[in-house]
Design a protein around this nucleic acid. Sequence first.
DNA 1: CTTTTCTCCTGTATGC
DNA 2: TGCATACAGGAGAAAA
Length: 309
Amino acid sequence: VPELPEVEVVRRGLAEHVVGRRVEMAEFSGPRVARRHLPGPVDLADRLRGRVVTAARRRGKYLWLELRDQAEPAWSAGAADPAPAEALLVHLGMSGQLLVTAPDGPPIRHEHARLSFADGGTQLRFVDQRTFGGMAWSEVGPDGIPTTIAHIAPDPFEPAYDASSVVRRLKVRESAVKRALLDQTLVSGIGNIYADEALWRAGVHGERLARTLTKPTLARILDHAREVMSAALDQGGTSFDALYVNVNGQSGYFDRSLNAYGQEGRECARCGATIRREQFMNRSSFSCPRCQPRPRSAAGSGRTQGGRG
DNA sequence: CTTTTCTCCTGTATGC
DNA sequence: TGCATACAGGAGAAAA
């Protein structure tokens, strides 16, 4: 499941293998992969053809290829402001992969999009088993962010990220703190795995109401989220090779030293208690029963009681 | 307006 | 062995 660190690994791969190249042709398997692009896949392909990829950028779990008409910045000659860029926006969803492959190979299973380049070199393919991910075209706003994801908050690694502002918004949230951490309009990049890890590190149960936690505690949770994602990114850089922009959320990164997520039945690394698994927001949550005691009253609402043994 | 639930999808694991 | 079911879950639409 690609969260911020995994998406960043992909972005780096794109920066290395795709930036600077001119798109010769884009092909899409059908409307679903381009469902966020309302004019449809044919229009999307038209918008990509002939454009030069000038950058690979990311906010949270979204990434995008910046598109311009030429590689050389027109403004370097000393004219006016640069023309606003456009972007091919990509979200990997749960199972999306961007793969750099040899040109003109046979379709990969679940391949939904393919970009070929004018240099005749490697191709970029979007492969997604569950097709929760997708691609869309977007203008880029004056802040450098595609306008279609203007509602996505800065992630903890951006200069625009303001932790104290996030804490203030958490302080008035009428919902469980884990639900808030997963809200990409509050802070982006955190998914189920790193939310559980951050809460474990902070020693806070995810179903506690956000507004009942102190500001220092909320700040600590956010700091832990950034730190655990940073550590994961350090480890994730390895599973990469020349022709393979790895997105393989499965094998490559599962060596991550997780303390809570997926650790049901194992000993808590801090206190030795047995890590438990509970259902929350119809998802699995993992926590330490001793380090992260449940709130007294049901905080998150919804179906919170674990139904699995 | 804020918050919660529902829906999309398919490979893998588990149960009877 | 075979078939049915649970599960993984990000994000936006829809509902409350």
